[in-house]
Simulated assay, not measured.
Amino acid sequence: MIITTVYARCNTLDRLELWEDLEEESCNIDLPWVVGGDFNVIMDTPENMGGLLVMQHEIMDFAQCINTYVLTELKFTGSKYAWWNGRIKDDCIFKRLDRVFGNQEFMNQFPVFEVQHLIREGSDHAPVQVTCNVSPERVN
């Protein structure tokens, strides 16, 4: 298995460089691959609450990146917004910047997985925990 952790820059051009680097990486991967971290961009406008409007081209660039690598977002539990700017009232911003994706080999190898957004403590990002099993546990 290959695990790639991501910290994408806030700048759109810097993120485009990262998307290109990931594309080069994806061409050489035939093992289960998990890509996760802070992508610093949302995939849809409802994933942003407060702050400036999100530029549609940034959303489209990110979606194209994920589609190019044939990655599937892993379903999660916990808060929808994994990032908070730490402010309140009118200055409060929540976004879904942290995600985990897997390729088809990962999905085949680990059909039972869980991504959980944990409680935010001491950071503006909620920690993300990924648990995966080869087969479902049986409860008698």
Rank of each mutant, 00 (worst) to 15 (best):
I2Q: 15
I3D: 10
T4R: 13
V6Y: 04
A8C: 08
C10M: 15
C10N: 14
N11W: 10
L13K: 06
L13R: 08
L13A: 11
D14Q: 10
D14K: 13
D14F: 07
R15L: 15
E17Y: 07
W19I: 00
E20M: 07
D21C: 08
D21R: 13
L22C: 12
E24S: 15
S26M: 06
N28S: 10
D30L: 00
P32Y: 01
W33S: 01
V34S: 08
V34K: 06
V34L: 14
V35F: 12
V35A: 09
G36A: 05
D38L: 08
F39L: 13
N40Q: 15
V41C: 12
V41D: 11
I42C: 03
I42Y: 02
I42E: 02
G50D: 02
G50Y: 03
G50V: 01
G50T: 01
G50P: 04
G51N: 02
G51Q: 02
L53F: 03
M55C: 10
Q56K: 13
H57P: 07
F62Q: 09
A63Q: 13
A63W: 12
I66G: 03
I66A: 03
I66L: 06
T68M: 00
T68D: 01
T68P: 00
T68A: 02
Y69S: 05
V70C: 02
L71S: 00
T77Q: 09
T77E: 12
T77F: 07
G78P: 09
K80Y: 11
Y81E: 05
Y81D: 05
A82S: 11
A82H: 06
A82Y: 03
A82L: 07
W83T: 08
W83Y: 07
N85S: 05
N85H: 09
N85F: 06
G86S: 07
G86R: 06
I88A: 14
D90Y: 15
D91C: 10
F94I: 04
F94E: 05
L97T: 07
L97S: 10
D98S: 08
R99M: 09
G102S: 05
N103L: 00
E105R: 02
F106A: 00
M107R: 00
N108K: 01
N108I: 00
V112T: 09
V112L: 04
F113K: 00
F113G: 00
V115N: 01
Q116E: 08
H117K: 10
H117S: 06
H117D: 08
L118G: 09
I119C: 15
I119L: 14
R120K: 15
E121G: 05
G122H: 04
S123C: 12
S123W: 08
D124I: 09
D124N: 13
H125P: 08
A126E: 06
C132A: 14
C132K: 05
N133D: 12
V134E: 13
S135D: 08
P136N: 07
E137P: 04
R138P: 08
V139F: 09
V139Q: 14
N140Y: 12
